[in-house]
Amino acid sequence: MEAQDSSIETHDLTVIYNKKPAIWNIDFLLPKGKIIGIMGPNGSGKSTLLKAIMGITEPNIGYSKIFNKPLDEVRDRVSYVPQRQSVDWDFPASVYDVVAMGRFAKLGLLKRLTEEDKHIIKDSLEKVKMAPFANRQISQLSGGQQQRVFLARAIAQRADLYLMDEPFVGVDASTEEAIINLLKSLRDEGKTLVVVHHDLHTAQHYFEWLVMMNTRLVASGPAEEVFNEQVLTDTYGGTLTTLSKVANLLQEKSFPMRHK
């Protein structure tokens, strides 16, 4: 795969938390128009990777590109779905209010919602089957419904690339199925979907491309090639002891990873 055909390219991406690498030298190209899973054990830096790609966390080393361009040039083509638990669902807002946030980037500071925006919001709500709940207060939603609201907000952005952080966590079976069908229909429209996921059982059925990581990149490639015992052992079978010793030393001695 060449860089110009890729949806996401990361180059030696490294993020350091507390002087210790949370992700280390992640370097890959992801294809377009596929459902891509990012997998790895807890604390392996999956969410950090998404945040670094979206510029929410500034990478200490390396860079990433989206559609072969810097993020800022293509921001309106990318949509990010944070972890559901990252927000306070007691916030006084309705389902409609939250989905409308998906249009804010295009509206700027003061412009009101146009008829078209309203249509898009409604349409997005229908796609996740939440239209009847449009006026429901978000604090009254179940976990699965909250997740659908987040997805509707992302759809309302009308992006080409969707980055989703653990959309399947804490949702009921019917929501899980609805989400995966939604992902497939988006893929059929030519969109790219990158999903952080941790359930190994479903991984093979959900994703066409897999990124396996554990702080470092273990493998990235078509699901049927990547999903084998060796890769799984490398990803989940404990950390590389030498690597984590070096990481601990960096932290202990406050050693800079790069210097000039």
């Binding site: 030696d12 280390w24 030298n25 370097d27 080393i61 470092r216 990149l217 273990v218 493998a219 990235s220 590389l240 690597l243 070096v246 030393l249 960096l250 001695k253 050693f255 800079p256 990873m257 790069r258 210097h259």
Partner: peptide, 22 residues
């Protein structure tokens, strides 16, 4: 790191420049 971090040989130098000291 080229073996365990899935990196091409041309990507490993910068990292080693830092880590060699620790």
């Amino acid at each position: 790191i080229s073996r365990f971090m899935n990196l091409q040989p041309d990507h490993v130098h910068d990292d080693a420049e830092g880590i060699e000291h620790v």
